[in-house]
Deep mutational scan, measured.
Amino acid sequence: MISLIAALAVDRVIGMENAMPWNLPADLAWFKRNTLNKPVIMGRHTWESIGRPLPGRKNIILSSQPGTDDRVTWVKSVDEAIAACGDVPEIMVIGGGRVYEQFLPKAQKLYLTHIDAEVEGDTHFPDYEPDDWESVFSEFHDADAQNSHSYCFEILERR
C-alpha cells in the first residue's frame, strides 16, 4: 500500500524555501509514529532540507540527478522507488510537492495534518478530489505552549 503523509496549511501550503513555516512538535511526533519502520520516499529537495537519513526507516530518494550519499537509496523513477521498498505492507511518501503529485494517483491512504495557519509558501500539496477519499480518523488539537497553531490529524482512505 502506498501512503502519503503531509502537513498542510491553508491553501495546501506545505513548504517555503525548503522548510515548513510553522513550529508543531506534535506533528513531528505524528510523522515519526506513522513512518517508523517503514520505507520513506522523498525528493532530493526534501532530502536536502532534512540533511540526514531518517533513523529507523529505509530512505529512498527520487531524483533525476541521483546523489552520492550511500546512506540512502537513490532512484530515478516512481517504479524504481516502489521496487526499492521491497515487499512491505506500507510505503510512506513524505514529499515534496512534485513527489506527492507523482504518487497521489497510486496512493491508497493519506495521513494529513491540517494546520490552521495562513502562511506564504512556494510548495503545495497537490489538489485531490475529496469525494474519492473517506475520512477514517480525525483528531483536532488547539494551539498550545509547544505548538504554534491549532491542527487536525486526519487519515483518508481511497474509496
Rank of each mutant, 00 (worst) to 15 (best):
E48F: 13
A7P: 01
P53A: 14
M16C: 14
A29G: 04
W47A: 14
M16N: 02
A117S: 09
E139I: 07
A26Y: 06
A6Y: 05
W30I: 03
R98Y: 15
V93I: 06
G67W: 05
N147A: 11
V10P: 15
D79K: 11
V136S: 10
E90H: 07
F153K: 02
T68N: 13
E120I: 11
K58G: 07
T68E: 14
A29Q: 12
E48C: 15
T73V: 13
R12E: 15
D116C: 15
F125M: 10
L156N: 04
V93A: 07
S49T: 14
S148F: 01
W47N: 03
M16F: 00
W74G: 02
I5K: 02
T73F: 10
V75T: 12
R159C: 09
D11I: 01
W47Y: 15
S63K: 02
Q102W: 12
S138Q: 14
D70Q: 11
E118K: 13
N34S: 11
P105M: 09
R98V: 04
H114C: 11
T68Q: 14
M42C: 02
D70A: 12
A117I: 12
C152G: 12
N18S: 05
L104G: 03
V40G: 01
K106W: 12
D131F: 07
E120W: 08
V72N: 08
I94P: 04
K32Q: 05
Q65E: 14
E48K: 14
E90Q: 04
N37R: 10
F103V: 06
M20W: 00
P25W: 06
V10I: 04
P39W: 06
A84S: 09
F31Y: 06
D122T: 03
S148T: 10
A26N: 03
F31V: 02
F140P: 12
R159Y: 09
E134A: 09
H149E: 05
D87K: 08
K109F: 12
P25L: 09
R33Y: 14
H124R: 12
V10H: 03
V40W: 00
H124D: 09
K109P: 05
D122G: 01
C152V: 09
S64F: 14
W47L: 15
N59G: 08
M42R: 02
G56R: 09
K32G: 04
R98P: 01
L8N: 01
P66G: 14
T68H: 15
L36P: 00
I155L: 07
R33E: 14
E80G: 08
L54V: 05
W47H: 14
W30E: 08
V99R: 03
F125L: 07
I50K: 01
P21G: 04
S49P: 02
A83Q: 09
S64G: 15
E139Y: 05
I155P: 01
Q146F: 11
P25K: 04
E48Y: 14
W30G: 04
V88Y: 13
I82D: 00
V10N: 06
A29T: 06
H114E: 10
L8A: 04
R52L: 13
C85E: 01
E154G: 06
I115W: 02
Y128V: 06
A117H: 06
I82H: 03
N59R: 03
L24Y: 02
Y100V: 00
G121V: 00
R159I: 08
C85N: 03
L24E: 12
Y111H: 02
G97I: 00
A143D: 08
W74H: 09
D79A: 10
D142S: 09
E139T: 07
R33P: 01
K38T: 11
L62Y: 04
R52K: 13
D69G: 13
S63A: 15
M20F: 01
D79N: 12
D127R: 15
Q108W: 06
R52C: 14
L4S: 01
R33W: 05
D132C: 07
L112A: 02
R158I: 05
T113V: 07
D122V: 00
L24T: 12
F125H: 00
I5T: 00
I2T: 01
E90M: 04
K109R: 10
T123F: 00
P130W: 12
V40R: 01
I61P: 01
H45Q: 10
A26T: 03
E157N: 08
M42V: 00
P130V: 13
Q108T: 10
L54F: 07
E17P: 02
G97E: 07
A81C: 08
P89R: 07
E80R: 07
S64M: 14
G67A: 14
I14P: 02
S138T: 10
D69M: 05
W22F: 10
E17G: 13
Q102T: 11
A7S: 03
R71A: 12
L4N: 01
I155N: 01
L28C: 02
L156A: 06
H45N: 13
C85K: 01
A9Y: 02
C152T: 14
R12V: 06
V72Q: 06
V75N: 03
G51L: 08
G56K: 07
S77E: 15
L24N: 09
A107V: 15
V40A: 13
P66W: 12
F31P: 05
Y151N: 03
T68L: 14
Y151G: 02
G121Q: 00
R159V: 08
E129Y: 13
S77Q: 14
I94Q: 01
K76E: 15
E118P: 14
V119H: 04
S148W: 01
A29S: 04
H124P: 06
L62V: 15
R33D: 09
P105N: 09
V88N: 08
N147F: 01
A143Q: 08
A117N: 05
P21N: 04
D127P: 12
I61L: 12
G67K: 10
G56M: 08
I94A: 04
P126V: 11
H141M: 06
D131V: 04
W74K: 03
R71Q: 08
S63F: 02
E118N: 15
R12W: 08
L54G: 00
V136P: 04
A143K: 09
K109I: 11
V119L: 10
K76C: 12
G56I: 05
N59Q: 09
N18G: 09
T46C: 06
F103T: 06
G86H: 09
P39L: 05
V78L: 09
A7V: 03
E80P: 03
W133V: 00
Y151A: 09
D70L: 14
A117L: 04
G67Y: 12
I82E: 05
K58A: 13
E101T: 05
S49C: 08
G121S: 01
G15L: 02
L24S: 05
D70G: 12
V88K: 07
K109E: 01
I50V: 14
S3V: 00
F153V: 05
P39T: 15
P105C: 10
E101K: 07
A117V: 10
P39R: 03
A9H: 01
K38W: 04
A145D: 06
H141G: 07
P53C: 09
P39M: 10
I91S: 13
S77M: 11
A29I: 02
M16K: 02
I41C: 15
P25A: 04
R33Q: 14
N23C: 12
F125W: 09
P53Y: 14
S63G: 13
A107S: 05
V72E: 04
P25R: 05
A29V: 04
S135N: 14
R98F: 14
F137D: 05
F137P: 00
G51F: 07
N23T: 08
F140S: 11
L36F: 15
E157V: 08
P21F: 00
W30H: 15
I91E: 01
V40F: 09
P39D: 02
D122F: 00
D79H: 12
H149S: 02
M92I: 14
K106Y: 10
Y128K: 04
V88M: 10
D127W: 11
R159D: 09
G51K: 12
D79S: 12
S138W: 05
R98G: 11
E118L: 11
S148H: 00
N23E: 08
S138L: 09
I94N: 00
C85M: 08
T123R: 11
D131Y: 13
I115L: 01
M92A: 10
D11A: 14
R57V: 00
P126Y: 04
H45V: 03
W74E: 01
W74Y: 15
V119I: 11
D79F: 08
K76L: 14
L4T: 01
D144V: 04
Q65R: 14
R33F: 13
D70H: 13
I155C: 04
P25M: 13
P105Y: 07
A29L: 11
K76I: 15
T73I: 13
R52Y: 07
I91K: 06
P105T: 11
H114Y: 10
K109H: 11
Y111A: 00
K32A: 05
E101R: 09
S148D: 03
K106P: 05
I14K: 14
E157T: 06
L62Q: 01
D131L: 07
H124E: 05
E48V: 15
R33M: 15
S138A: 06
C152A: 10
